[in-house]
Simulated scan of single mutants.
Amino acid sequence: MDSFSTLLRTASHEQHVEAETSTFMSDLLGGRLGVAAYARYTEQLWFVYEALESGAERLAADPVAGPFVRPELFRLPSLERDLAHLRGADWRAGLSALPATAAYADRVRECREQWPAGYVAHHYTRYLGDLSGGQIIRDRAERAWGFARKGDGVRFYTFEQIGNPAAFKREYRELLDAVRADELEKQRIVTECKRAFTLNTEVFRALGEEFPLTAA
């Protein structure tokens, strides 16, 4: 029988691929969009991580979500440094969430406040993705727009407190395998994981509409 971490990965594979191969992300990674699109994307991330991390410490004692509340993963301070670099010191004044982003953040916040197991689903889809595929985005941004390696502009993708990402991801999967949930609740987590990827894809779709490639 597959472990829960394996089940989570395989069951959400289709939605994960759809998010990764969205037109917006393909154009961004392919160098066909400018730094303005990257900055707008970074703004949208701020809303999602604000929902994920603000008040997360209140889940620290929860038997299901508590083991996943790891301060070394928190991204908000790094996102805010990146936004100050990309948008200037008054970046908050121009911050705005796309409707798709607001819907995503609202769902994350709802899970954080009302359903700890659902919070785990969103935690998994965000942080393990940041530790893995996020490094491709960091490398592209550094090359395309001249950001210092792991410096301002790409700090979101730099986990300074995690010395060995591969070992950390193995430990994280062990936490998933040990999650305190029965089989029905695990299936609900899988469903929420798929929903998280779909919500993320909707953000990419909205960004793609905001930053369409000009026809030749």
Rank of each mutant, 00 (worst) to 15 (best):
E43I: 07
R70E: 15
A51S: 10
D106W: 05
G146A: 07
G88E: 07
A65F: 02
D90I: 13
E142F: 09
E50D: 14
A144F: 13
E142A: 08
Y119M: 01
T42D: 05
R112C: 02
G30F: 08
R138M: 14
L52E: 00
A89M: 13
A56Q: 06
G88R: 10
D130Y: 04
A105Q: 00
R40V: 05
G94P: 06
R81D: 13
A61K: 12
H122T: 08
L79D: 00
P116I: 03
R58Y: 13
T101V: 10
A84R: 11
R70N: 14
R92N: 10
R126D: 01
F74P: 02
R140P: 04
A39F: 02
A141R: 05
Y49Q: 08
P99H: 07
E50Y: 12
G94K: 04
L86S: 07
E142R: 07
F147P: 00
E113I: 10
E72I: 13
G134S: 08
R70K: 14
E110Q: 15
E43G: 05
H85V: 14
L128Y: 05
A117N: 04
W115K: 09
E50R: 12
L29D: 03
V120S: 01
A61W: 12
G31T: 07
A39M: 04
I137D: 02
D90F: 12
D62G: 08
I136V: 15
S96I: 13
L45N: 09
V48I: 15
Y124E: 08
P67W: 03
Y124N: 05
G146Q: 05
M25W: 07
E142P: 04
M25S: 06
G146L: 07
L33T: 01
Y49L: 11
R58T: 15
E50M: 08
A37W: 00
S54D: 15
A65S: 02
M25R: 09
E57V: 12
E142H: 12
I137P: 00
G55D: 08
R87Q: 11
L52C: 02
Y104W: 12
M25I: 12
A117C: 11
R70G: 12
A65G: 01
G94D: 08
D82Q: 07
P71C: 09
E110R: 14
R138Y: 09
V48S: 10
A93Q: 13
A141W: 05
R109P: 01
A97Q: 00
Y38A: 00
F47D: 00
A121H: 04
T101S: 11
A100C: 11
Y49E: 02
G94M: 11
G118H: 03
E113D: 14
Y104H: 11
L128P: 03
F68R: 00
R140T: 15
F74G: 03
D139N: 15
P116N: 02
T42E: 02
E110A: 15
E142V: 13
L33Y: 03
L59G: 03
D106M: 07
H123T: 10
I137S: 01
L128A: 04
R81I: 11
A102K: 03
A103Y: 05
